[in-house]
Structure formats: structure tokens, C-alpha cells
Design a protein around this nucleic acid. Structure first.
Lengths: 360, 360
DNA sequence: GCAGACTATCGAATCGATTCGATCGAATCG
DNA sequence: CGATTCGATCGAATCGATTCGATAGTCTGC
């Protein structure tokens, strides 16, 4: 290990210095570090010695990146404050899977909270962001200015349903089908009056009751499709939009539904966290789950503090993240990549049961 | 917005092309985009027109970075899999605060899961990672190969207690004092037999009982200092190391403590998540909190699903993250920056109460 | 002993943008 | 009117490394 006495901005040691001290050309020195072509062992030794003596720690990443045209940075755009987005274990699991593949590629994941939440001018600094590819992994708006900027720069963009646009490769889940599948499960259990807790239809909305028309006009494709999936089965489900896909919003939304004159016997929530909040709301009202109220989620994440086994759609978020990563990898390898469809499945837990007698 | 018909690897449009079409030199064209010196309005217009016509989206970030010596990337090293680390709301909150400041700097946050968990060879690809600074925000090992690499490269490194080393600037919390403060709170409530759930003493350990000697030998300064803080007040607290700082480990650790022949009347957990797990364990055994068992945490995070107000040390994680970010900002501005000490305080909630009568 | 096949190494061009100092024309001043 | 200043623009060097094609030098085989 090279001794480093002083910190600060000592003049940077470059390949030129190393080559000079070793008495070889820069090209040769470069080959020693990249290993792209064989170098005679004693020459290589001299170069390495020189490097060590000078405290050269290897090629300067930026210079290297410029030459290679690859920075080793994959941008992951988070269309919310990290504090909110990462509260959801689904997001964290997807990110984990993605980071695995990105790590295997020898790249890093650049977290890019999109302060504008997808609208407005992302600001000039965005175009200064170094990235080989950009990934959108939240269920956000179908239009996103940041995505458009990346695409215009020729940076490959991958999404999971949103944003969409020409040149954006998707890893897609059959949202509508999956959602309908949950609904059918409840219908088969005899439920006829259901409430539906949707994810945000737009950023910044309050938690509250909605009409189907509002849903149809939403620019959040995932939310919209899942809502339509429920509607395919239950024509008249009461709709509540959650302000955030989190526990508190699920709690509040469930209370709105249960306060209705004709309270539901089942609540379909479009995220596990929302569902957990709904279960809590029921429990606080003295309703037993699933005897008095069935609750379903969507995602299939593990919530260790939630003592139940949620009936949910298992999205295998970790694998989904990996799938996204693999698309990125293939795109950067120059392969022709089309949209990928990602399989999900219903997992029945202990939060759903037959509709209460007399209410079916 | 420039029309982009075809995707793919069309030859990149560079400043040279734009300058050529506009009939100016590259230097002038560059000035138009950087705004570093005034350019005559009609010249600037011609350049912007040319850029639009060619679909030039602004200076190439990598080239720009090379020239400026700044990449706009701040590396945040996570010494665990993201899936585990981000399960802890404390980590997420710190990250959120950090990302705010980093965002204000116009930079991005590069997530770097350290697969080696701080030991072993981080691999050659690490030295290819572009970053202006590196941040360690978890309570990890005091020695970290990755941190050493960054430091050797002259990249400023900032930590929160760990890793430490020459040239690593710290944002430090008085861990030992804070921990002792919690312990004194319990002693003042009459508790004499306490159990102590510690965070990991090393990566990969099982949850289990430990001796003080083992603790003293740990290379995780935060865990160690907090443990010593408890010991300053309770000489004979039973010690359990949690495998992870998460709910399940807290649950398991609490059970180990409560299974002892002389079960504690209070449990000190070194993270809120661990504490929440401990409360659950108590509750599953029919113990009331705080009447039968007091439980304390550390961090001061919000756990919406946890219906209690935990007695804890409020670390203001968001502000802590911001503080770390500000150190990074100042370092990159060239300021002389020393270690920062970060204030925390005891927050008494409803999970602690007087020791049960007859057991004090 | 020499053509031919290889190796190891080198020089120069390149990746794309930024910036310092120089130049040139026009405007200002006495 | 000549000297001076100012503003706009340009040329060339630079950031640091990589790579292609060329050049010595080495070894084989006949």
C-alpha cells in the first residue's frame, strides 16, 4: 500500500508519470493495467513498481470512461422522495434485484430522485448526469420529462410499465389480468360488495373516493390497469385513491370505505403496504380479518412485522428487478431487446375468506 | 424538441458538428452552452439553431467531467445487500437527507452495495468507479477496504463513525453517551435487571448471547460504543447480538433474553426496528409493555405500523443525512473540514415505565 | 543465412469538451 | 486622427487514457 502522508490536491499522478518512471511508452503502461494485450513480464513489473512508487492507483475513471464511451453508471430514477419511495419494501426489493445485476456488470446504480415528479423542467443539471442507461422502476406517470431527456440523448431507457414512449423498453406485468384474478378470487368466495384501494392516480392527490371516470383519465398506467382489472369483475366496487402507497394511506383509505353506508365485505388494495394498513384499520374497528372482512394486497413482499399471510399477487419483486437489470445488460451489450413480459401469480394467504353469511 | 426518428447508434453529434454548422469555432459554441463568457446574441442564436437542427442535446457529460475533474457523482457505500440495509427506515431516512443535499449540489447518489462487506478485495472494477466523494452511512466496520481504496485515490471519504482512518471525515454521534442516557432513564424508573439487544458486532454472525469481552473485540465502533454506554450504567446487563438490525432479529433476540432464568424487566435495543421486534415478542408471550417489560430503541424513526410511541434516542436521521451531505459539499468546495459532532436526544415514549413491583 | 511469422513496444490519433491567451475590429477618448 | 480599451471570437493546449497501425527485434524452419 502506497504511503500517503498529505491529503489535499497534490498534482495527480497520471499514466504518463508512471510510464516515464518505468521508461516505457504510455501505450505499454496502459496495456499493463488493462491487460488487453500481453506485456513482457519484466516490463510489466517495472511499470507496476513505478506505479506503486508514485502511488498511482490505476487509470483515472473519467478519462477511461470517455475513451470507452461507458461510465459504469446506471441511473435509477425514483419519482418521489427517497423517504417515501423506499418506505415500500416492494421498491427496495426491486432495487435490490436490479443492483445485483448491475453489480455483476461491474457498474453502479445512480439514484436519481426526480424532484419534479416527472413533470416540468428537470433542470439543466440533468443533462450533465453521467449514465449508460436509465431505469424507471416505480409505477409512475406514463410521460416523464426526464425519460424523454435521456432518450433524446440516446441513453437507453427501461421502464416497468411507465413511463412509456418510443424507444423505452418495458418489463411488463399483466397488471389488469393479475388484478382481475384477485377480484375473481374474492367473487368466488362469495363477496359482492367490495372496496378498492388504488395507488396514486397522480402525484400530490389526497386520499379520497373516486369515480371510474377519474381513473380512466389517470396518466399512471399501472394504477389505471389494475383498477380496470377489478372493474372487469366487480362493476360497482367503491374506489378510493391512496395519497401514497404506504401504510397510513391504506389505513385512512380503508376507513373511508368502511364508513360508507354499504360497507364492503372485502377490500382489494393495490399494494401490500396499503393492505396492511387496511387490516389494521379493520382490526381497530373490531372487525376480524378474514371472518368479517377480507383484504388483499399486491406485490408479494415480506412484512415481518405484519403477523399475517396476506392474500396477494406475488410479483417476485427481486426477480423483477433482476429482469430489469438483464434488459439493461442486454441493451448495453448491443442486443436487440423487445419488451419483456413478466409473470406474476396469485398467492392465497389468511386474510381472505368466505363472505360473511347474510352479506353475500 | 428535436425529432428523433431512428434509435440506435447513429454517430454521435458533437460540439464540433454544431460549431461547424453554425460557422463558429468550438470554443464559441462551448461558451454558448456553458454561459461562462458572454456571446453575441445572434451568434448564440445561430449555435442554438444548429444544435436543434442536429439534435445536439448539450455537452457530453463524460467529456465535460474529464475536463472539469468533477463527475457529479457521490458514492454512497452500503455494506450490505440493499434488501437488508434499506429495510431499516433509519438508513432510508439518512439516505433521503443525503440525497437532498446531493441533489442541491446538482449531483447524483451512486449506490454501491459492498458485496465483500468491507473485507477482502473489493475487486478491480471498484477502482473504475467514477465518484467525486464517497460516503459511508451505515454503522459498519472501522476498517473498510473500499474506503481505503477511495482514500488512496484521493477521493474524499465521509463516514458516520465507521469506517475510520486518516483523511476520513466523520459526522459523529456521541454513541456511548446517548446509549448511557437511555440506560439511566431505565435505572431511574427502578429497573435493575436489563437485557441489551445489540446491533451486529460483525457481519454474518448469528443472533445469540455474548460476553462483554466479545463486544470489546468488535470492529464495529457504533455497536461497541453503544454497548459500553449501557454497561456504564448496568454492569451486568445480559447481552444479545442481533444478526441484523431488523424486526425478526429483534424478535428472536428478545426471546433469548426473556427465556433466561432471570428475565429482564427492561430491554434496551440499539435500533428502533430491533425494539419493535422485541415489543412483539413480549406481546406474543402475554407480557404487557410497559407494565411488565419496558423496551427502548435507538434512532427515532417513524414506524407507521407500530402502534406505539417508542422510548428512543432521536437521531434525527434526515438531518444527519443532510449533515453528511453538507460535509461532502464543503469538502468538494475545497474547504478545510474537520469532524462534525451531531447532537441527539432522548425521547420518552410509552414503551417504558416503572419496573414491576417486586422485581426492582 | 535469410524469408516469414511472431512478439513486444511505440507514436500518434482519438474520445468531446473547456479554457487560456491571442487576435481583430469597433468604439472611446483626448 | 492616433492610441487605447473593450468585447467577441478563435486556435491550440489540455483533461487522462486507450487503441490502431507501424516498427523493431526474436525465433523458426529450410
Amino acid at each position: 500500500m502506497p504511503s500517503r502522508g498529505q491529503a489535499g490536491t497534490a498534482a495527480r499522478v497520471t499514466l504518463r508519470d508512471v510510464a516515464g518512471l518505468a521508461g516505457v511508452s504510455m501505450s505499454t503502461a496502459s496495456l499493463v493495467f488493462s491487460g488487453n494485450k500481453p506485456v513482457a513480464e519484466d516490463t510489466a513489473g517495472r511499470v507496476r513498481d513505478a506505479a506503486e512508487r508514485l502511488g498511482y492507483t490505476g487509470p483515472h475513471p473519467m478519462a477511461s470512461s470517455l475513451r470507452h464511451g461507458r461510465s459504469g453508471v446506471i441511473a435509477a430514477v425514483v419519482e418521489r422522495r427517497i423517504l417515501h419511495a423506499f418506505r415500500d419494501p416492494y421498491v427496495v426489493a426491486v432495487l435490490d434485484g436490479l443492483s445485483q445485476v448491475v453489480g455483476e456488470m461491474g457498474s453502479g446504480l445512480l439514484l436519481l430522485p426526480d424532484a419534479t415528479e416527472g413533470h416540468g423542467d428537470p433542470g439543466p443539471q440533468v443533462s450533465r448526469i453521467v449514465a449508460d442507461a436509465a431505469v424507471f422502476m416505480l409505477c409512475g406517470d406514463e410521460n416523464n420529462a426526464l425519460a424523454a431527456q435521456f432518450a433524446a440523448r440516446g441513453v437507453p431507457v427501461v421502464g416497468t410499465g411507465a413511463p412509456c414512449g418510443p424507444g423505452i423498453v418495458q418489463v411488463e406485468v399483466p397488471e389488469r389480468d393479475a388484478s382481475a384474478q384477485v377480484a375473481r378470487h374474492l367473487r368466488d368466495l362469495g363477496h359482492r360488495t367490495v372496496g378498492h384501494i388504488m395507488m396514486p392516480l397522480a402525484w400530490g392527490n389526497e386520499t379520497g373516493l373516486r369515480t371510474l371516470d377519474t381513473v380512466r383519465r389517470s396518466h399512471f398506467p399501472d394504477t389505471r390497469e389494475r383498477a380496470l382489472g377489478v372493474r372487469d369483475v366487480f362493476r360497482r366496487a367503491a374506489l378510493v385513491e391512496a395519497a401514497e402507497a404506504d401504510f397510513d394511506s391504506g389505513y385512512a383509505a380503508a376507513n373511508l370505505l368502511l364508513d360508507r353506508p354499504d360497507p364492503p365485505t372485502a377490500i382489494i388494495a393495490q399494494s401490500d403496504l396499503l393492505a396492511a394498513g387496511a387490516v389494521q384499520a379493520a382490526s381497530d374497528r373490531g372487525l376480524r380479518v378474514p371472518e368479517d372482512l377480507s383484504v388483499t394486497g399486491f406485490d408479494g413482499v415480506s412484512l415481518p412485522w405484519f403477523g399475517r399471510e396476506l392474500t396477494t399477487i406475488d410479483q417476485r419483486p427481486l426477480e423483477k428487478g433482476r429482469a430489469v437489470g438483464e434488459v439493461v445488460r442486454d441493451l448495453l451489450a448491443g442486443d436487440e431487446v423487445g419488451d419483456v413480459s413478466f409473470e406474476v401469480s396469485l398467492r392465497v394467504g389468511d386474510t381472505t375468506g368466505p363472505a360473511p353469511v347474510g352479506r353475500r
